[in-house]
Write a protein that binds this DNA or RNA. Sequence first.
DNA 1: AAGTGGTCTAGACCACCGA
DNA 2: CGGTGGTCTAGACCACTTA
Lengths: 267, 267
Amino acid sequence: MTDPRHVPPSAGPRYQQVADALARDIARGLYEVGSLLPTEAQLCTLFNVSRHTVREATRRLVDVGLISRQAGVGTRVKARTTAARYTASLGSLSELVEYIHSTRLTLLSAGSVAADARLAETLHCRRGQRWFQLRTLRYPVDRSEPIAYTEIHVPPQFRDIEQDIDGGTVSILRQIELRSGERVVEVLQEIGACAIPAPQARLLGVAPRSPGLQVLRTYRGAGERTLCASLIVSPAHRFTLSTRWRLEQGAPIGPHAPADRASPAPA
Amino acid sequence: MTDPRHVPPSAGPRYQQVADALARDIARGLYEVGSLLPTEAQLCTLFNVSRHTVREATRRLVDVGLISRQAGVGTRVKARTTAARYTASLGSLSELVEYIHSTRLTLLSAGSVAADARLAETLHCRRGQRWFQLRTLRYPVDRSEPIAYTEIHVPPQFRDIEQDIDGGTVSILRQIELRSGERVVEVLQEIGACAIPAPQARLLGVAPRSPGLQVLRTYRGAGERTLCASLIVSPAHRFTLSTRWRLEQGAPIGPHAPADRASPAPA
DNA sequence: AAGTGGTCTAGACCACCGA
DNA sequence: CGGTGGTCTAGACCACTTA
């Protein structure tokens, strides 16, 4: 019942049928990876459609990465099949950072520090590197038990960022972006478990060495310059991080609302 | 009103100029979010180009999420500016799952279970739901200390998956995909910290209630059918999860056009 | 210089939506 | 029903690559 060659002439618009046929032929190996597809003119006669239709068809295949076009050269086969890619995406940095909307921050301290051995390892920087450090606690608006302890580190030249940090890391990032003219280009995130050290445990109202989630985020501009690094420590069960990975189909149809977000653990 | 034509006419093809002009007008607020753009015919006369060119222009704007088109209705403005998007991507599921390449798995047990209250909550399923459960330990090839305890749950109809699980979750997923004809379309991942319960702690060689990382992954096919759910528990410091988020530029090369997002987001 | 894809025009018919 | 975007044709000129 499942003969792959039995594929009915695919339905839908002509360009889709052409695209499907080409994709099938590529998968079949009729057109090998690296070789050139027939020219658009040839495809026109081959499928008996206008050039516009051929281009609409090949455009789809370009979009899914099967082929690429180059003026003056031709249309080259890039891959035999569309690789399965799973992606997660964020609408903005705030979705990564503001794990709970209705939270408030309190600033514990702000000052210049030099990285000791532990901090250097955590932030992947040289020992002795100087940072301007903000230490904060994040609370749900309606409770007095903090969710997380956060250390935010920025390069010393940004030490005079406005310290109304209620906007959290995002507003700090925005200020840095404005002042440096750089854009956050990538965020490296490392998640692990830890035994919460006594000082933080005291702040968070849990027993020393009790289980905690530790999230390190390094915000980088172009050229791998670190614009900000934040370290979050949160007792177990106070929140979880969720990410939704979705298969990226060839044709990105339909709305997707994937988001990495953190959600509070049920109380 | 300022004359928008004082802006230097953007370079490039005609459709790009049209797209730029429209994007500028949307950003300016001339066309409000939610409202309809002029019809394609109107845009043709407005810019004095053919309909093909107008469509090529609006297609770009659709790709970057500024507008959407609907046959019979019109072209609607979806956002005032292209929001910064950060995406993370995986080449395949194995990058998500096989956190360390050189590991080996040992099977502790395999059997049918009914979800008790705890499991039901963990897996977000009904209490009493039946699963075929595999319990495993993952070791680095060169050490005897396990890095993680993993429970893999699959729907009972897949209970006779081949139990040579050395391939890990991925090979199990592949088998399920083959047998069900379904594809893993999305993966929901929840990460939290926990105090490792005594039984698992014993298996992992750590003290009961010591800190652990807990990762729940739910693999879903189309229609939100759960094909597999895995629960990983790993003692602190034995491994960390890293993710790299990258800024996705507005109109990059291959229009892996993210579909529209509802949230206009940050002010 | 010949041939490729890139762009653009002018015109046509269709399915679908809303009044 | 009239108007919208969706599809498709036929033809044209261009910039570019390759020989």
